[in-house]
Amino acid sequence: MTQTHSDYRLSQLDQLEAESIHIFREVAAEFEKPVLMFSGGKDSIVMMRLAEKAFYPAKIPFPVLQVDTGYDFPEVLATRDNWVDRLGVKLIVASVEQALADGIVIDDGKTSRNRHQIGTLLNAIEENGFTAAFGGGRRDEEKARAKERVYSHRDEFGQWDPKNQRPELWSLYNGRLHEGEHMRIFPISNWTELDIWDYIGREGIEIPSIYFSHQRRVFLRDGMLLSESEHNPLRDGEVAEERTVRFRTVGDLTLTGCVESTASTIPEIIEEVAVARVTERGATRGDDRFSEAAMEDRKKEGYF
């Protein structure tokens, strides 16, 4: 619960919450067909919580879209279903497998599932006629994101033009679109990884169990600890063994590494994050490591 103080000060977490709620309401008021992109990860769960608060006691006035890579952690899907049930929102699942089968995205054998998500997502946005898609991107995550607007314009091809962004001043957001274009909305732009954890702790909300320390059979690949899985066949020389781990981000399980950790409560995670020496993406996301400008390139093509 938010406390009001006699000196009219709002803690930074309450200020961030107020700003995000303002953004949710602005979009619901001004866009015809918004959708919330829900990965089941901690950032999208915080978005769900903020949307819940923004419209309470009414239901969230837009559906939730998940891009299913086919390689999602079952624990994440379970949390997703709990959230969707509790809030009574409509869930749309856009499947990468289906998009591949339908020829909407083409598998050249070299591209990761993560990249196939782009085509699958854009197709789902176009098919459903969504005009605004909320994403859980934070500006502290990565250099290209640091410059992205809260309302981030996408052309008819779903592409972002970083050199030609609309000025964004005060809290006055410009949602004008032409036919076929859409807007990506980043309501938690100004949150940091630590803010997200503080908020999850304060709100006491459900997140996937894989964020907490657990026993798991893992193996080392490209310096990352990956989960043993049927989707992740071991290569020559790789051996799986049981370790005490947790995940700092959740994504495609063939690319998302875990870290050895005994942090099993939110305060322990916060403590770990506060002293972490490596960014969450650098540590555990294979998809960002291909080049220094990897994220910028994927964003231009229409990634989250």
Partner: peptide, 18 residues
């Protein structure tokens, strides 16, 4: 942050830091 900025060595857009 942006590739063109690194190439030109100048900062051309507002970047937010935390």
């Amino acid at each position: 942050g942006l590739r063109s900025e690194r190439e030109q060595g100048i900062t051309i857009d507002v970047a937010y830091r935390y």
